[in-house]
């Protein structure tokens, strides 16, 4: 029977109304089995029965389901959206697990045990005690070259990845260089070609030999894949056109970092612009430590 007057406080009521971490236990078991097979076959896409989540596809439903199956009450959870902790998507997913799993949350990369990310890898190197959960829109790296799932399954089974090299070659023929700047395809342990999710190719080298467990969830496309720690991940390239982890040729105008991935921000209608770290936690930590970029210098000097 439904009580009309609910004496429970807001947070307690949420925890009681939903199962721990929102999903029902049978769904979590199904996702957990997929994660384990994904870890056993690095880079291979494991099909799973993705559920409807209380957010639209494209908002990280795959990552949310992987996080829900992974979180324990002892975890400290961080969510970033293109490096930022304070965007709508990151804030709402963080709140979602605060309320349904009762986990602590943080914006500090070093304090988090589980980090869900959309399209970035944090600048600060991850540790063995951390888990990085990627939100993936299109898990199949060959999808835009071959629309049929039956065919791409065969191509992975036969290690038939020539088409991907043709695509990169066409980039060179047309643009003089490999123009793919994000979702840059990688080969895992010399076997499976994998979509790293739409992270900038600047982040690709961080995937290889990473101490953390990396899990990938694609909700709409119903695929989970994984990289165990210290897995070899190689960005595809050619001998005469080697892979290059590129970024904007500038330093952060807030913290002065010259080796972090930068976002370009348009400041006015007169062509004014500034570059800032895409990783907001990294940038803030540097500024807290007394580092500053050109903007701060100008302000201080005026």
């Amino acid at each position: 029977m439904k009580q009309t007057a609910d004496p429970m406080p807001e947070k307690g009521r949420d925890l009681n109304d939903y199962n721990f971490a929102y999903l029902d236990e049978q769904t979590k078991r199904m996702i957990r089995r997929a994660i384990l097979k994904g870890l056993a076959i690095p880079g291979y896409q494991v099909p799973f029965a993705s559920r409807e989540m209380p957010m639209p596809y494209g908002w990280g439903t795959g990552g949310v389901q992987v996080s829900a199956a992974t979180l324990t009450p002892e975890d400290t959870f961080k969510v970033i959206d293109q490096g930022a902790d304070d965007t709508t998507n990151a804030v709402s997913i963080r709140k979602f697990f605060e309320r349904t799993a009762g986990v602590a949350t943080t914006e500090e990369t070093a304090r988090a045990s589980v980090i869900q990310t959309r399209h970035r890898i944090p600048e600060q190197p991850l540790t063995e005690d951390q888990i990085l959960v990627y939100q993936v829109p299109i898990p199949e790296p060959l999808r835009f070259l071959e629309p049929s799932e039956i065919e791409t399954r065969k191509m992975h089974a036969l290690e038939e990845y020539g088409l991907m090299h043709v695509k990169l070659y066409e980039d060179i023929a047309r643009h003089g260089q490999i123009a793919t700047a994000y979702a840059y395809p990688v080969k895992v342990e010399g076997r499976y070609v994998m979509d790293p999710s739409p992270i900038p190719k600047f982040d690709n080298p961080k995937m290889s030999g990473n101490a953390a467990i990396q899990l990938f969830g694609a909700g709409r496309e119903q695929r989970i894949y994984a990289l165990p720690p210290y897995t070899q991940v190689v960005s595809l390239d050619f001998q005469d056109y080697p892979f290059e982890a590129s970024k904007a040729d500038a330093s952060c105008d807030l913290c002065g970092a010259d080796s972090s991935y930068l976002d370009e921000v348009i400041m006015d209608d007169a062509g004014g612009r500034m570059f800032v770290c895409s990783d907001t936690d990294y940038c803030r930590a540097r500024r807290d430590a007394g580092q500053s970029g050109s903007t701060a210098t100008r302000e201080n000097g005026s």
Binding site: K28, R29, R32, I35, L36, L39, T72, P73, I213
Partner: peptide, 17 residues
């Protein structure tokens, strides 16, 4: 729900390492 989450983390850590 909570104890199987902890058990899964143990199982996942083992499989990942």
């Amino acid at each position: 729900p909570v104890e199987s989450a902890r058990a899964f983390r143990a199982a996942m850590t083992a499989m990942a390492r």
